[in-house]
């Protein structure tokens, strides 16, 4: 099993959209390495032919009748937004400078 390097933590943080400080990189690299080493024990069943379980309840798709039912109105939906403009969610630009 590979160990988790500082660079790898930085990569994971980018994937997870988490800004991390240099100090956090050091802390998390050590801790994640320790945790992954411990949980890697599950690898002992990797080669065995066992069906995976994603969920303890054997449910498949659950449907309901396709009828209109009450939902949130615009005011309720935007009431907790960090920024609202003209009744809509105002968000930062979504394209990079180079776009």
């Amino acid at each position: 099993m590979p160990s988790i390097s500082r660079d790898e933590v930085a990569h994971l943080a980018r994937l997870a959209r988490l800004a991390v400080t240099e100090a956090e990189l050091d802390l998390f690299a050590g801790q994640l390495d320790q945790i992954v080493a411990a949980v890697a024990q599950v690898g002992q069943v990797a080669d065995q032919d066992i069906p995976p379980t994603s969920h303890s309840v054997p449910l498949t798709n659950v449907f309901r009748a396709d009828v209109v039912r009450p939902g949130l109105n615009q005011q309720q939906a935007t009431a907790a937004a960090p920024a609202v403009e003209d009744g809509r969610f105002r968000v930062p630009r979504i394209l990079g400078e180079e776009a």
Partner: peptide, 26 residues
């Protein structure tokens, strides 16, 4: 979040998340 992101990453998925799901069956 980072541990989960790692466990679900391409290349590690079968070894970690896949094995954990087998353990769940056991």
């Amino acid at each position: 979040i980072m541990l989960g992101t790692y466990a679900l990453s391409a290349g590690y998925y079968d070894a970690y998340y896949g094995s954990a799901q087998k353990v769940r069956t056991l």
